[in-house]
Design a protein around this nucleic acid. Sequence first.
DNA 1: AACTGATTCAACCGCGGGTAA
DNA 2: CTTACCCGCGGTTGAATCAGT
Length: 349
Amino acid sequence: MGRAPCCDKANVKKGPWSPEEDAKLKAYIEQNGTGGNWIALPQKIGLKRCGKSCRLRWLNYLRPNLKHGSFSEEEDNIICSLYISIGSRWSIIAAQLPGRTDNDIKNYWNTRLKKKLLGKQRKEQAARRATLRQEIKSESQSFMAPSGVVLNQQTPNYYWPELPSSAIMPAMNPSQDSHFCDQESLKSLLIKLGGRFSDDHQESNMASTVYPLDGSCISTQDQPYSSSMNMLSSSGTSIASTESPCSQLPNTNYAVSGAAGPSTYQGLDRFPVELHELMYGNQQQLESLESLYGIDNGANGVMSAGETTSWGNVSSLAYPQLVSELETCLQNQPQDHSSFEVSSYFGPK
DNA sequence: AACTGATTCAACCGCGGGTAA
DNA sequence: CTTACCCGCGGTTGAATCAGT
């Protein structure tokens, strides 16, 4: 069955908004609110616009406290960090950048940030390849180490050279515990969001399993598009379109239990492995990121298949300050949250 | 000054989720 | 349970603008 159109396409104006239309819409909403019905709104105020168009105009342009200037370094870092963690969930990313809209951030990422990072990445790759070639040459007679080992030891920040060390987190520093700090933050954050983690893995024999509290069970083997960070948001709750994102952060209603690897990963220690698996299971995201960073599955001679690269710790890129801010927000939230579906974050879009 | 290709960003489109009837 | 509708999201488009020649 076909979907009914949201409005009469023949009788609605399209294209750029005139100042008069803006003024009408703004005045009405500021005085009366949206009335909870965008579709009916344009008729009420005599605008020949689709309700969706009105909504978009208000959210992206007319609503108060919007920033329209250039993005700061800090904002860049937050966007990068969150993109790595959750992918193109622009509304969630926007919720962490007050005054920015999801559309703004999406455009900024697609047109500038991606290229900026790509340019730096390529420079660094070239430099490192040269260095590597030289070292392999000089050491090849006495020692032959897998290239990935060499890379990881020498270039812990390989994939995000421009992120400040504070954003990279200890996971990127091989001299420290590679997982614990930030993933613990994430974990506690997820718990505060209302979910729970099952550290009792005895019952599980799946690679990685998410247990929404509604009783259903999602195996990440069956549903490869998953990431623990994906659970930070609700499909059913608007975050981006509010002026106070914190208040809109959804409560999660899920639990995560980890890989059931025989005693290799126990309790909390298993969490990093889950993230690793989840990220590796996210083919769509991985491909886009590979494309972004020019990774070609080892064919470029820098990486080799199966190596534990930075991607294994990819969750550690989450901006730690951001995590703590989220935690603060969540502490201020009322406890009576409606549940939301985890399942919407599994399975390719 | 004129042309052309690249870039930006506001707006559109279609889809999935939620929900009331 | 099904249907119809609205909302919100992410991907895409295309006009406007910029930069280079």
